[in-house]
């Protein structure tokens, strides 16, 4: 019971964090057709910038200014790099962002070293919010969830209730028509790219103070975020929210479970036979927890490439 509640809570919060990063990625793909490999790098940049700023000023300055800096970097990339290679097609844009991943990772290593930095949350945020079955539950986890929730509400209101949001949604569906109607589509792209980068930066700034901040964080999170946007359906915000929660909860549960295919066979009385096979069949879920998301991604791509909520094929 304890495991169930704590794991669910951890999973939901991790899922909301995943959503904060994947929201920008999926929005950018939906509008511009660019699959931005460097998106998780923005997450990493957010964490490192916030680390530096919180050292120079305080935690809150880092939390607010770091995402803005990341958004500016994102806009510069869109304006001076992506737009330049746009004529060569989407594959080329994708390759360009792919190269940027290495540059960002190496720059971070250059400035901060190969090892994790100790990006700390302030002490007054460091308390147990409640006690579950004798275990303290850290407030900061809840804080991450709250920031994500706040961001989701802001994003939702922006997209559905404001003029800008309408243009964004129009430009997403029919860029040429939107342009013909006199909207400045390149400007919208610039804004969306910047906003997406800023969101990833914000999640880095929040999460970096809880999870390790190291040069590998972009690559590690990057592949999971890809899984999320694919499973949710490339371009679908609602889809990636569901997929984020799904994968968040799954990862959190899988770590603690030692189920295997063999135990599944055990249910129908074939346990001994399955155990004798060894190999994949007896591998516990906890050790293949990193594999399952990719399997899910693969199945979605092959069976329903539009994803859970996507409508485009």
């Amino acid at each position: 019971m304890e495991f169930l509640i704590v794991s669910t809570l951890n999973g939901v919060i991790y899922g909301m964090l995943l959503f904060m990063v994947s929201a920008g990625l999926t929005l950018i793909f939906g509008m511009m057709g660019v699959l931005n490999f460097a998106h998780a790098s923005f997450y990493m940049l957010g964490a490192y910038f916030a680390y530096t700023l919180s050292g120079l000023f305080n935690f809150w300055v880092g939390l607010i200014v770091a995402p803005l800096l990341v958004a500016i970097i994102g806009m510069l990339i869109e304006r001076y790099m992506l737009r330049r290679v746009h004529a060569h097609g989407h594959a080329h844009e994708l390759l360009l962002t792919f190269g940027l991943v290495f540059i960002f990772e190496e720059l971070i290593k250059l400035f901060y070293g190969d090892f994790p930095v100790s990006y700390q949350r302030p002490d007054y945020l460091n308390f147990a919010i409640f006690n579950l079955f004798g275990t303290d539950y850290p407030f900061y986890r809840v804080f991450i969830g709250l920031v994500a929730l706040l961001m989701f509400i802001v994003l939702f209101v922006l997209l559905t209730r404001t003029r800008v949001g309408m243009v964004v949604r129009a430009a997403e569906r029919l860029p040429d028509t939107a342009r013909a109607l006199g909207h400045n589509v390149p400007m919208v792209f610039l804004g969306v790219f910047g906003a997406g980068a800023g969101l990833a930066g914000l999640s880095g700034a929040v999460a970096g103070a809880f999870f390790p901040t190291n040069p590998n964080m972009a690559l590690e999170l990057g592949v999971i975020v890809f899984v999320v946007v694919v499973v949710g359906g490339l371009g679908s915000l609602a889809g990636s929210l569901i997929a984020s929660l799904l994968i968040g909860v799954f990862s959190s549960f899988a770590v603690g479970l030692d189920w295997s295919l063999a135990s599944l066979f055990g249910l129908i009385g074939l346990g001994d036979w399955a155990n004798s096979l060894g190999g994949l069949v007896t591998m516990p879920l906890s050790s293949i927890s990193a594999t399952v998301p990719f399997l899910l991604m693969l199945i979605v791509l092959l069976v329903r490439p539009a994803g859970l909520m996507g409508s485009k094929n």
Binding site: L35, H90, A91, L94, V227, F294, L298, L301, L302
Partner: peptide, 10 residues
Amino acid sequence: GVYFALVTLA
């Protein structure tokens, strides 16, 4: 296209 690239990646 992109979907092919993602299958190979996965």
